[in-house]
C-alpha cells in the first residue's frame, strides 16, 4: 500500500474526499442516534429541521454562526501564516471586556460614533492579547501553541475576577455579571422585528475583506509566503518577523470582534458563559474551511446549524445534545483524514 501523488488535481478531486468525509459523519451521527434508542432518520430530520426548518431556527443558526465566523477567520488567517493561534477564546473575552468597559456609560456618545469606537477597541484588545505570544515566538522561540492555549485559562480567570469584583453589576442580585450596555452601545437588528443583529453582516464583511487581503495585497502574499516556506520568504526579502507580528494583530483583532459582536449584538452584558468555546470551535471551523476565508462562512454556518439543530432535536427526541459535539469532532477528524486524498491516490500494489 502506498500513496501516490496526483500532479494536478481536478476540482472534483479536491472537493470529493472532504464531501465523502462529511457523508460518513452523517452516517456516524445516525449510528449514535440508533445507539441512543431513537430512530436515526427521524433524528437526522429533526436536526435539519431545528437548524433551518423555520424562520426562527434559521435566524438562531445565523446568530450562532456570527461569532464562529469571526473566530474561524482569526484562526484561518493565523494558521495560513503558520502562527498557531489556539487563543481565540482569550482574545474574544478581552474584546468583550473592553466593549463593556467603554460601553456601559464611560463614553456616552450617539450610536454612530460609539459603535465603531467600541468595535475598534475590542479588536485592539484582541490584537494585543495575541501580540504577546507572537512576540515571544519571534524573539525568544517560545511555542505559541502553549502560550496562547494557557492564556485562555488565565484570561478566563481574570474575567471571573472582574465579574466578581471591579466590573460586577451592583444591581445584579449577586450574580457574577457586568452591568448592561447603554442603548447606544447595542448593535441594532438588521431588519426590525427579526432577531438578527448587525454583527452577522459585519462578520460577512470581515470574511470578504480577509479574502481580499489574502489574495490581492502584498501583505496577504507575504503572510502566505511566510506560512508556506518562511526560509524562502526570508531569502526573498520578506521581513518574516514583522509579517508574523502583523498576522498576529489581524488574527487577534478578528477574535476580539467576536467578543464585541456577542456582547453588543446579542447578550448586552458580560457573563462567564459568554462563549461556550467559540474560540476552540473556531479552530474546527477554520480547518473544515481548509483555511479559506469564504469557506469559513460556510463552515461556520454548518457548525452552527449542527449545534442549534442538535439542541432542538434533543428536546424533541430525548437524544442528548452531546451528539452535536461528537458529530463535529468526527467531522473534523474525518475531513483531516480525507485531505491527503485530495492530492494523493492510494495504491494497493
Amino acid at each position: 500500500m502506498r500513496l501516490e501523488p496526483i500532479p494536478n488535481p481536478t476540482l472534483g478531486r479536491r472537493l470529493g474526499p472532504p464531501a465523502a468525509a462529511l457523508g460518513v459523519t452523517v452516517l456516524f451521527a445516525m449510528a449514535l442516534a440508533w445507539v441512543a434508542g431513537a430512530d436515526p432518520l427521524a433524528v437526522l430530520g429533526l436536526i435539519v429541521k431545528g437548524a433551518v426548518g423555520s424562520k426562527f431556527a434559521l435566524l438562531e443558526t445565523l446568530n450562532r454562526a456570527t461569532p464562529l465566523i469571526f473566530t474561524g477567520l482569526a484562526v484561518a488567517v493565523a494558521f495560513r501564516a503558520k502562527l498557531w493561534n489556539i487563543g481565540a477564546e482569550a482574545q474574544l473575552y478581552l474584546g468583550a471586556v473592553v466593549t463593556v468597559l467603554l460601553g456601559t456609560g464611560a463614553l456616552s456618545w450617539p450610536a454612530p460614533a460609539l459603535l465603531p469606537v467600541l468595535g475598534l477597541a475590542a479588536a485592539l484588545a484582541g490584537a494585543l492579547t495575541l501580540l504577546g505570544p507572537a512576540w515571544a515566538k519571534t524573539r525568544l522561540g517560545v511555542d505559541e501553541v502553549v502560550t496562547t492555549l494557557l492564556l485562555n485559562f488565565i484570561v478566563l480567570l481574570f474575567v471571573s475576577y472582574l465579574l466578581e469584583g471591579p466590573m460586577k453589576d451592583p444591581m445584579g442580585m449577586g450574580w457574577p455579571k457586568s452591568r448592561r450596555l447603554i442603548a447606544e452601545a447595542r448593535l441594532p437588528r438588521i431588519v426590525e422585528g427579526l432577531r438578527l443583529h448587525w454583527g452577522f453582516a459585519l462578520a460577512l464583511i470581515a470574511a470578504v475583506l480577509v479574502w481580499l487581503v489574502q489574495t490581492r495585497t502584498t501583505f496577504g502574499y507575504a503572510m502566505r509566503a511566510v506560512g508556506h516556506n518562511a526560509r524562502a520568504a526570508r531569502f526573498a526579502g520578506i521581513p518574516v518577523t514583522s509579517v508574523t507580528l502583523a498576522t498576529a494583530l489581524l488574527s487577534g483583532s478578528l477574535a476580539g470582534l467576536a467578543g464585541f459582536s456577542e456582547v453588543a449584538g446579542l447578550k448586552g452584558n458580560l457573563t462567564l458563559d459568554l462563549s461556550p468555546g467559540f474560540g476552540y470551535t473556531g479552530i474546527i471551523v477554520a480547518m473544515l474551511a481548509l483555511l479559506h476565508p469564504l469557506g469559513v462562512v460556510v463552515a461556520a454556518l454548518f457548525v452552527a446549524g449542527i449545534f442549534v439543530g442538535a439542541d432542538s432535536m434533543s428536546r424533541a427526541a430525548e437524544v442528548p445534545s452531546y451528539i452535536a459535539d461528537m458529530l463535529l469532532a468526527s467531522a473534523l477528524l474525518l475531513v483531516v483524514l480525507a485531505l491527503p486524498f485530495t492530492r494523493f491516490r492510494l495504491r494497493w500494489r
Binding site: T217, T218, A222, A225, H228, N229, A233, F235, A236
Partner: peptide, 28 residues
Amino acid sequence: GTIADFTLTENAMLERMAEPPFARAGLI
C-alpha cells in the same frame, strides 16, 4: 529559492512582490 505550493507566477515575483510593476500601494 522557491515556495513549493506557490504558482510559477507567485514564485517569479517573489523577490520583488511589493514593488512595481508587481504591486502599487500594497495592491498586487
